[in-house]
Amino acid sequence: MDWYELAALVFGATLETLYMVAVAALLTLLIGLPLGVLLFITRQGGTLPLPGACSVLGTVVNVGRSLPFIVLLIALIPLTRWIVGTTLGSTAAIVPITIGAFPFFARVVEAALDEVEKGRIEAILAMGGSVRHVVFKVLLPEALPALLAGLTLTVVMLVGFSSMAGVLGGGGLGDLAIRYGYQRFNNDVMMATVVVLILIVQGIQMVGDRLVRALAHRR
């Protein structure tokens, strides 16, 4: 395999990985953020205490977090095929990646909201504010730096999930490393995928850290 062929393979696999991570990150945010908010406000002593609902949500989240991703990847094959129509390719891999990530992010959101000063919440409620006011005027704005830091951590985790999805033909750098690197004993491909994955993770972490510092400084 010459350099140009290797570069083309790595470039295409990198685009697939970025596609999987970007879409899965968006879906994880859309599912995990409201779920984390619900876990926080419905728990005992929360703004909208609903212990029964909180217990059900907590169980769903805990079950999702307790399964190793590779097991979840295999267990979700029927669901993935039903949603996407296939279990191969980068689009199909987005389904298990998202399902594996949003329970983790929901707990991250809950922990971030738990750091908000209770006095601010009580002040809003004392002035006649509703649960919606508490969530959008206090909880989310006050916890924004912590939420962004948690989202950065989650996106980095998604990169790892996207690589593991390559075990079952999920596409991306993981699939490239397995098919062309491991199975064909090509060390150049293995090294190239490792380097690119490191660069992707470092880039995500660097951008996330800078945004967190900028938000913390503005506050």
Rank of each mutant, 00 (worst) to 15 (best):
L144I: 01
G46M: 13
P49Y: 12
A214P: 00
L173H: 03
Q205M: 03
L39M: 15
A165G: 15
T154W: 10
L30H: 06
H133D: 11
L35Y: 11
L30V: 09
L39F: 13
L215D: 07
G208H: 12
V21F: 04
Q44T: 01
L140T: 00
M157H: 13
V84A: 05
L88F: 02
L211T: 07
G12V: 01
A126Y: 12
F185W: 14
G12N: 08
L33Y: 09
E110K: 13
V23C: 03
M206G: 08
R219H: 15
V10T: 10
G64D: 09
R120G: 14
G169V: 08
F136Q: 02
E115H: 12
A146D: 09
D209V: 09
G119S: 09
T80W: 08
A111C: 13
P78L: 01
M20E: 08
L125M: 12
F69P: 03
L50G: 00
T154P: 00
T152D: 13
A53I: 14
Q44H: 03
G89D: 01
G32W: 09
T17M: 04
G64K: 11
A75I: 07
R213F: 15
L48K: 12
T28S: 06
L199K: 06
E110I: 02
L33E: 06
T17A: 05
I94N: 02
G45S: 04
R218K: 15
V21C: 05
L148Y: 08
L197C: 07
P78N: 02
T42W: 12
T14V: 04
G100N: 12
V155T: 11
L73Y: 03
L57F: 14
A177I: 05
M191G: 05
L158Q: 14
E122S: 12
L125H: 07
H217I: 03
I31Y: 02
V196C: 10
V159L: 13
A101W: 04
V135F: 05
L88I: 02
E122I: 02
M190I: 14
P78W: 01
A165M: 10
Q205N: 11
L6P: 01
R184H: 11
R218Y: 15
G58T: 03
F11A: 08
P51A: 05
L73F: 04
V21P: 02
L199T: 08
M164N: 15
C54F: 11
I178Q: 12
V37G: 00
G45L: 05
T86M: 00
L139D: 02
C54Q: 14
P51Q: 08
G172T: 05
R43H: 09
L76F: 10
G171R: 01
I97F: 05
A112Y: 08
A53E: 01
A13F: 04
N186D: 15
F104T: 06
R179Y: 14
G128I: 08
T59I: 06
T14F: 05
P49T: 05
L48Y: 15
S130A: 06
I97Q: 01
V155W: 06
V207K: 13
G36V: 01
A92F: 02
L33K: 03
E5A: 09
G32H: 07
V212M: 07
Q183G: 07
G36H: 06
Y182E: 12
A53L: 15
V212G: 01
A13V: 06
R65V: 03
V37D: 00
V37I: 10
E122L: 09
L9W: 08
A101G: 08
D175W: 07
F161W: 14
E16W: 03
